[in-house]
Nucleic acid binder design. Structure first.
Lengths: 341, 341
DNA sequence: CTGAAAGCGCTAACAT
DNA sequence: ATGTTAGCGCTTTCAG
């Protein structure tokens, strides 16, 4: 950055003072239309570019929000980001995206960085192994709103946007049972994280409510790597399951692939239920039954809530931490069709 | 933002001056280990948080790069972002992601915003309808490096990271021809954009080199909306094609779905060739033949090049604008298997 | 309607 | 090893 054209340079050229130039550039009505136009004209002539950093320092606000996601290469996350972006942009804020890459350590660093950059608000989905949210208390102390979405800490009192994972897990399992399945395998991820834990609890409860005994051997925990999914499916097949309830559609599609390779028919021999309503679910054969998990809507709602809270800056006491539950919906396609008796 | 704890507050408490505190916090060797430790200790005690804005203003650099993408909800783009992130983070830079949402107007606004925020470098993939790159000249004037990836302006002299779209289009088409196909339909997007145009030219050339006459009626331009793809496939079927070469794997999967619904067998009746090597290609039936388009690698290379150019700040004359071509590779799976004579 | 003056919080010559 | 001083570029109160 060599020497910049500043408002002083414009001021000098026009024989006015920097304050006037600043007002002019910001289209303040306190400066005549004529000077305002002149200011804009010379500004472009001289190649002036507003310095947001200086402005931010002076105004003590950045008109920027931070978003911490647990990964970037996920269809669900990009939908959420698209939703956030839609709302945030309309309100003339910018977005600083940080990627924790499922690492709690990086998440802490991300939070610190956002704090140092003085973002006006934060939206977060927690990393897989985040144990507490102490790294967000500096924000709350400073009355900077923080909204958690999807992956949250259930116990902690703060604003959350989630789906009802328990009910979704319950509903998925109940649907499989209604289809005549009795040995339902469940492939999921780290149960520390609320989303997986609650779906798992829903699964167990549905079994129980239908008089099916829960068997630990029918449950496998793994991350969403293809190799791990393949391995999990193969292991679980030893338990002779008649259905799989899988953590996401991508993994469910892999599951189907493995089953086909092993000579099983889906859904005739084994049913497969996904989660997330990924675009891909409609394109595989058989089409995947799944739970609709409206990412873009979730992003929009989180962002709307954030903007709302940011605008309440001066009487922050009015903010009530709430939990917003977004409706999720079971989508029944082909992979779980009923068994003929 | 109420009154902050500043280095002056720490200085006062410790009976030293702000410079010392600043040095201490930055772990400058010019201050004794003892005072350094004291400074850090009191800083945390007092809840001090470094103000990046003030620091950036003073240092006249932000350690932040801007990335403008044409959309967020694309598997390819998220791979690129992941790649960029990997490299950029290692170099202790932050990333400001902007979404042009395929709008040239928004792209111009994004560029301006990044300029105002004084990013140290920029990585861009152009929107569908961007006509020129004048909005990036202010960066180049200020010696702020700009790297274009994937969607670029071929004519303009600047640094680009791309794949060889012409050859890829050629190779895909030649592969189909080698499989005995003669009436090869092509579904693509706006030919203004280099990537589509060059693949199209490759397609034409391959036809020509193999003595097949190019037929305009076998080519359809559309965006990647599902409905448009379905419509395009249905229209093209009237031309009795024996193969489809489709702009991306997602659309190719839709194409297969339509063909199945119409009673065609893939690849026996009609072959389908995708583009991008999306994860999804391996999960559909039949598995998709496609062109591997290494997004993450592209991101890594663009970022590495950017960092390289940013480090050359003071003798920017040394920068040679170059075009880096990343190898793309045809992947033959099931959807284009050879016709039996 | 415009100007003067102060300061946002930090860093880096230059001095001691 | 630490202090002094100035200033990054902008906004905003207060004055005229």
């Amino acid at each position: 950055m060599q020497k910049e054209v500043t408002i002083y340079d414009i001021a000098e050229r026009l024989g006015v003072t920097a304050s006037t130039v600043s007002r002019g550039l910001n289209n303040s009505p306190r400066v005549t239309k004529k000077t305002r136009d002149e200011i804009h004209k010379t500004a472009t002539e001289m190649g002036y570019q507003h310095n947001t950093i200086a402005s931010n320092l002076r105004k003590r606000q950045t008109k920027t929000i931070g978003v911490i996601v647990h990964r970037l290469d996920s269809y669900f996350i990009t939908c959420v980001l698209t939703g956030i972006e839609k709302i945030i942009n309309k309100a003339h804020y910018d977005i600083l995206i940080m990627n924790s890459a499922e690492s709690g350590v990086r998440e802490v660093a991300n939070a610190k960085s956002l704090l140092n950059k003085r973002v006006d608000g934060v939206i977060v989905s927690l990393a897989l192994n985040t144990k507490n949210i102490d790294h967000f208390t500096p924000f709350l102390d400073r009355k900077i709103p923080v909204i958690f979405f999807d992956r949250v800490m259930p116990e902690v009192n703060c604003t959350k946007v989630i789906i009802d994972n328990f009910s979704s897990g319950y509903e998925a399992t109940a649907h499989l049972i209604a289809g005549g399945r009795k040995r339902i395998a469940h492939i999921t991820a780290d149960l520390q994280r609320n989303v997986y834990k609650e779906r798992f609890l829903g699964y167990k409860r549905a079994l129980n409510d239908n008089g099916i005994i829960y068997k630990e051997k029918l449950v496998k925990i793994c991350n969403a790597e293809k190799s791990e999914i393949v391995e999990a499916v193969e292991q679980l097949l030893k338990q002779k399951p008649d259905a799989f309830f899988v953590m996401n559609d991508f993994s469910a599609a892999i599951c189907i692939q493995v089953l086909h390779k092993k000579g099983f028919k889906v859904p005739e021999d084994i049913a497969v239920m996904g989660f997330n309503n990924d675009i891909l679910g409609d394109l595989v054969v058989p089409k995947l039954s799944t739970l609709d998990y409206p990412g873009e809507l979730m992003g929009e709602i989180a962002a709307t809530e954030l903007i709302n809270q940011m605008s309440l800056k001066h009487n922050r006491e009015n903010i009530v931490d709430k939990t917003i539950v977004i409706p999720s919906e079971i989508i029944i396609r082909e992979s779980t069709l009923k068994l003929n008796p």
